[in-house]
Amino acid sequence: MKDIRHLLHVAAAFVVVIIGFLIARHLVVPKSFGRIGHYRADAVDEIKALPLRYAGEQACAPCHRAQAKAKASSRHKGIRCESCHGALQAHAEAPSSLKPAKPKEGEMRAFCARCHEKNLSRPAKFPQVDPREHNPGVACSQCHPPHQPK
């Protein structure tokens, strides 16, 4: 016994360290950790609570009824308002605070070309024109009203 006392002292030191670790672990690990899986359950709620930027289609129709109705029967019916008008959650919450973007006449040809400029990489049956040949200089909306394009 006398000749292994030094070993017992070291073993005791180990026990102290392990107990200290367990106490530290108890204090440091977030309370919600492991409640659902091996992660911090609160993180899920934090991510759920992140702010919205796009309001979503259903936020627009109640006020902008005419445009919504026109669009609903047009070839653009699948396109959501914010695809062209920008992220508008702020506008949906307080309509006067932020005015929706609308492509200006001068920029319109470039704006529409983003989707409709002739490009071999696009699906062939998607409507495309060469903007250099197709009525150059004329705003697209003169012939193709964006909410009811022909």
């Binding site: 991510i47 759920k48 796009y54 979503g56 699948g78 959501r80």
Partner: peptide, 23 residues
């Protein structure tokens, strides 16, 4: 990508789906 977890848990579409003009 979070699949816009803050949107889909509120019944909205992820922003990329919401803004895709061709489906």
């Amino acid at each position: 990508c979070t699949l816009c977890y803050h949107r889909i848990t509120k019944g909205l579409q992820p922003a990329c789906v919401e803004n895709c003009p061709t489906g």
